[in-house]
């Protein structure tokens, strides 16, 4: 089931449509379904060690963010009944709204995480190219994804270099914030310099805008029955959201 990238893409679209148009309950259930699918269905397991390791912390911080949003909304959006929790006056309307938005954002983020964790970059690129996107855009996507992939390693290196110069990267929050620039600036500067060099390097190897790229490991990209079903279901979600009050 759903081995091809376009099937995965259609499932992603389905979950995104629930997040955008479906009820908050469905969004929450979808998040759980996604987590189970990711754990049990081989095609949705993360490919890289790194994304396997990073998933849980990222997911938990998303949950935390959603909870925080709920509380902030409960405090500020003063609608409906008031109830007091740990000395805070929370409004029912605000909480409802917070839960709804939180659940939706959680679903969007989780489905993107699961999707990008389970596809390879060449595979994604070949699919984008099949879909008729211009090569220049596909190339830009590829180089961007490449850069994103290198960021954690770069940050570690920059972190070490600045810490070795006495930068307070691990001390009190206010001092840490001030040393933030010393991490961000090398990241951006070296990123810009490198992307210019990469552009030059590509043309030096005969790459021209418009050259059709080929991708190994492109694998299966046709839309199976399962994929089509999910596309139809996505439409269905939107239609339901339109028709139902």
């Amino acid at each position: 089931m759903a081995h091809s990238i376009n099937d995965k893409l259609s499932i992603l679209i389905f979950f995104l449509s629930i997040a955008l148009a479906g009820p908050a309950e469905a969004a929450l259930i979808s998040v759980i379904v996604l987590l189970i699918t990711r754990a049990l269905a081989p095609p949705f397991r993360p490919l890289a060690q790194a994304s396997r390791r990073r998933f849980l912390p990222v997911f938990l911080s998303l949950v935390l963010l959603a909870c925080l949003m709920t509380i902030v909304n409960g405090l500020l959006l003063q609608e409906g009944e008031v109830f007091t929790v740990a000395g805070l006056s929370l409004y029912e309307g605000g909480i409802r709204f917070g839960v709804k938005t939180g659940a939706r954002l959680l679903l969007i983020a989780t489905s993107l995480l699961v999707f990008f964790g389970s596809v390879t970059i060449p595979h994604l690129a070949s699919s984008l190219q099949h879909a008729g996107l211009p090569t220049q855009i596909v190339m830009t996507v590829l180089l961007t994804v490449y850069f994103l992939e290198t960021i954690p390693e770069r940050i570690t290196r920059i972190f070490s270099a600045q810490e070795a110069r006495g930068a307070p990267v691990r001390s009190r929050v206010d001092r840490r914030v001030r040393s933030f620039l010393s991490i961000l600036a090398p990241l951006i500067l070296s990123g810009i310099v490198e992307s210019i060099e990469r552009g030059t390097a590509l043309t030096l190897r005969g790459y021209r805008a418009g050259t059709r790229l080929e991708f190994e490991g492109g694998g299966e990209s046709r839309l199976s029955g399962v994929g089509k079903l999910f596309i139809v279901l996505s439409f269905f979600v939107f239609i339901l959201a339109w028709v139902l009050p």
């Binding site: 770069r154 290196r157 920059i158 070490s160 270099a161 600045q162 810490e163 070795a164 110069r165 006495g166 930068a167 307070p168 990267v169 691990r170 001390s171 620039l181 010393s182 961000l184 600036a185 090398p186 500067l189 070296s190 310099v193």
Partner: peptide
């Protein structure tokens, strides 16, 4: 001992200048 404290005693440079230059 935190690295930021050891830095007062020992200064280290690494191989990639671009990792540290920011000013």
């Amino acid at each position: 001992t935190a690295t930021a404290r050891l830095a007062a005693v020992i200064a280290v440079t690494f191989q990639h200048p671009s990792d540290q230059i920011f000013a």
